[in-house]
Simulated assay, not measured.
Amino acid sequence: HEFKLQSIAVVGARRLEAFASYLATIPATSRRVRHLFISIIRDRTPRKSKCRLFKHRICDFWEHERRTSGILNQILKCISPTLETLHLISNIPRTSVLVSIPLPRLYSLTIHGPMHIYDHLDDKLPIFPSLRQLTLKSFTEYPAGMLHDISRQAPSLNGLSFALERPLAFLPLDLSRALDHESTQEPTVPPSLNQISVHHGIGQKDKENVWIRAAQRVMLENLSKVVEMDNRVKVVGLKQLHTYHEAKTRWLQDCDSR
């Protein structure tokens, strides 16, 4: 079948809404997207000023999040039968470490941005049976049970990559527990997983922060112990993480090589 919309890049909430409207006007047989890049990062929550003004601003912010999340899910539902790769840059909260819509053919997923996860029920987690490569970039929160959720949602995962711009103290501990071969508990990584990469660095603004640098050293020391325990884990230093704009440029270059 012809893929009319082979590779699509959408930047900004307005263009996201326009793309959703376009998909709604064409037949289902024409909504055949294989590779999708979406960037919907919004500025931080408004700072407090006058109470009444702040209340209006924060309500607008929450409404934007709710609306944008709904539009994103609408798009993913429309193209879920054919979507194979997804690069999502977002700070919109979601109910899953991965996206909230099951994508049966998706084999590569990159999520770039904060990791705001709402509470969810395990039996309602969307499943991604074809997912082989998962990359999580530039997140500073570490959701409880992240590796457990990934294992449940991506049972055929081969490669898992973290790109950190700040140290995450809980990551080495979670990896150690998940990869503990002597544990009597159920494994919390997919049996198919053969590579875990941790790319670490410190953002330009934080390089002079003594506490962050100390936390980085501790994290790397603990990660080195995990590497000794399991050779599937690789730790790689980063000079600089891609900005959101650079991520789009890199994605477009990858599209040309497909």
Rank of each mutant, 00 (worst) to 15 (best):
R42D: 03
M146C: 14
L5W: 05
F54W: 13
V235F: 06
W211Q: 10
G237S: 14
I212E: 06
H116G: 04
S108M: 12
M219C: 08
I79L: 08
V218K: 14
S138R: 14
H116K: 11
A28Q: 12
Q204N: 15
I40E: 02
L125P: 11
C51I: 10
R132N: 11
L83N: 00
I117R: 06
L53N: 02
P191F: 05
S161T: 14
R94T: 12
S224E: 11
T188D: 01
D256W: 14
L241I: 13
H87L: 13
S176C: 08
Q204I: 15
L88P: 00
E228I: 00
T188Q: 04
T135C: 05
R47A: 15
L86S: 05
A178F: 04
W62V: 11
T135A: 09
G145W: 06
H1C: 05
Q216G: 02
G113I: 01
I38R: 12
G113H: 01
G159H: 07
L36E: 14
L168M: 14
I8W: 05
L134C: 10
L136S: 07
R14L: 13
L106R: 10
S80C: 03
A28D: 01
L36Y: 02
S224Y: 10
I92P: 05
S30F: 05
D149F: 10
I41E: 02
D123P: 00
